[in-house]
Amino acid sequence: MAATPGSAKKRIPLTQQARAYFLRHAQTMVGALGRLSGQPVANVMTVAVIGIALALPIGLHLLVENGRELSGNWESVVDVSVYLHEVADAARIETIAGELLDWPEVSAVRIIYAEEALGEFAELSGFGQALDALENNPLPDTLVVTPADNFTDAETLAGLGEALAAIPEAEMVQVDTDWVKRFNAILQLIRRTVGLTAFLLALAVTLIVGNTIRLDIENRRGEIEVTKLVGGSDAFVRRPFLYGGLWYGLGGGIVALVLTELSLLLLRGPVARLAGLYGSGFELRGLGPGGIAVLIVGSGLLGWAGSWVATSRHLRDIEPT
């Protein structure tokens, strides 16, 4: 007979106890996954719902980030167009262009003569024949002024515009920064919307996980009672459910990642074609390693949090009778 009364923990070194503790956590973690695989259909559906809920804000986020990058490209290449009076002849125009190059704010000046502009327009617009019907060229000679790199902010551009307008031969100066500002404002709005959506959907994910775990707790009532009877602490009883929630979250995160990457794959071709038509080398950006890490860790934490809420509310109620 070996059943001498005494504490079960005596004589076991601390290091071994610590190892046993971590091993037990790992076992519980794997065990929770194994339990989920026991009901594949229901759990795949749960994970898919979580994944779709997460993919939505991520997709919007990528849209905003790509849009911001796009507008950033545009902002840096913004040009100032100076439309000239008809009276200016070619020699005079070149002189003006030469003078402008001496300005510190100006890095390049390109001359587009009226005839060139008309030819280009006819070619690109497909209105060639209609334009032939015009008696004279409606387009002015134009100077396209590219600001120096450190003079591209909106205020400096406005100043440059005024200075250019002061040239006697200039009829009209167009500083096209307004639409960039508007575009950025729209992006700002979308970003705020994305934030709100992300918050609501994160809440939805915790609720989904919480409810799933609540049902799981209900199904395992007997097991919980027995565990408490033989001395299982609240933390011990709770642990497999927390790991279950973690798995739901992680699974949802992976589904969201796959959905996002698939969508990017489908969109990449058309976007590249569109960008090509605008003469841009713009490419859709994905989440990148940092973003993927945030997604996976974040989704895991959401699942864990959902389970934490459910276990806090329901495990206490189950006591042996």
Partner: peptide, 29 residues
Amino acid sequence: MVFQDHKLLFDRSIYDNVALPLVIAGLPD
């Protein structure tokens, strides 16, 4: 504690049932 209805967990092996109190106590495998 011993109960009239045994209170065993039928989805686990005999080993796991008996081991439960020791697992809770945090003993090495």
